[in-house]
Nucleic acid binder design. Sequence first.
RNA 1: GGAGAGGUGGCAGAGUGGUUGAAUGUGGCGGUCUCGAAAACCGUUGUACGGGCAACUGUACCGAGGGUUCGAAUCCCUCCCUCUCCGCCA
Length: 424
Amino acid sequence: MLDLKFIRDNIDAVRLNIKNKNESADVDQIPQLDEKRRSIIQEVEKLKNLRNVVSKEIAQLKKDGQNADDKIASMKDVSDNIKRLDDELRITEEQIYQVQLYIPNMTGPDVVAGKSAADNQIIRSWGDEYKKEVERNHIDIATDLAIIDFERGAKVSGSGFAFYRGKGAKLERALINFMLDYHLDNHGYTELMSPYLVNEKSMYGTGQLPKMAEDMYHAQEDNVYLIPTAEVPITNYHYDEMLPNEKLPIKYCGFSPCWRREAGSYGKEVRGFLRVHQFNKVEMVNFSRPDKSWEQLEILLSEAEDIVKALKLHYRVLRLCSGDTSFASSMTYDIEVWSPGEKNWLEVSSCSNFTDFQGRRANIRFRPEPNAKPEFIHTLNGSGLATSRIMVAMLEQYTDSDNCFHVPEALRKYTGFETISKND
RNA sequence: GGAGAGGUGGCAGAGUGGUUGAAUGUGGCGGUCUCGAAAACCGUUGUACGGGCAACUGUACCGAGGGUUCGAAUCCCUCCCUCUCCGCCA
């Protein structure tokens, strides 16, 4: 959410930003609604002041045993007017809020205006030496090794769901544990294991609602949502809180499955693990002072890169253009690994600075100095990493011509085995 | 799911219609005393919005939202949450 005062003072920039982000929000009605809001406040507060003063006079008169009927009668009208104006104010503020909810975060200074993924900037790439030519993609390999079962996933749950089986399941667990341990041991994170169902308020707090309602699984009976990312519970962990300045930045990481309906995305990149309704991810969340958040974003990105490097996978880093930068994000870096089977880049991490956008929605603040006014915190998060596409790249990268998968060095102490072959 | 109790300031805890933004305690901050500290004593200690260049000032906030009333922390309704007991259950 953007600050109302900011919108009022920067209406043109806000309008341009909406356009650059391919969003639609009718910001034009804000100035007059805000004007109306303020004039109502001034009027109603005058009346309330009058009411307070006269009420005290009435109390005094009664205490002195005198008659106060005249004053009470004269206040009746005032009271009715207050009620009417308060209603009007409430409606006006609700109208403003409903517009505000759909206004995206302002993009950061380094974000170029652009329409689509084609306009994203390539920042760097790494691990050229790990490129490899393969004939089979991850689906063939995994099916052949019987470590991932897409068919039965579809039978039991629907397309976009899969079973990990045998050594495949253990490999997945190894990957998750490796990533978590890496961040805990090397990057100073505190682990959070979170709820996977969250309430509506949390979804508004991080900005998934109201815009993304269609993309989430919703349990109507209890009005809770399956999380599309651990960002939601972990960021909202500090909902309505004042964070101690001396503890900043506060860094949490956590594993969770992620559920996404992916409504309307059929036909593209849906094969196998490329786009699924449920996948596993380790998420990193950072609560930062505003003056440090851009610096923290670079650190967060490097922490995610460390994982890909440790797995020795060829990857590149992109800075997303405005059109590709998500609703709540100010700036986002994507990490993409090379899939030899797809001959394409696959997104495995998104690292974003949300500035104060989520902090304002979720009311998470801190005090810059002991007696200073509270300010909204900056939040950042990044995948570190999503496993399904890492699994794609690993399977294609590390399976030899004899159809034997070699576990990457970094994962061996977690798997307890070094290879996976057909009859394991 | 059934029955009951409760949600007040950083925390604890008074307050059942009229100078209550809220007693009191405690914690925090500043000070006096002290070589220093403790104790004691004094002072101070919320947020949001509006107006004002500012000092300042107005309004609101006692779980949330409605209602009654000239006036609500206090009365009524709805919802949320916590706790206790019973039932069910991994």
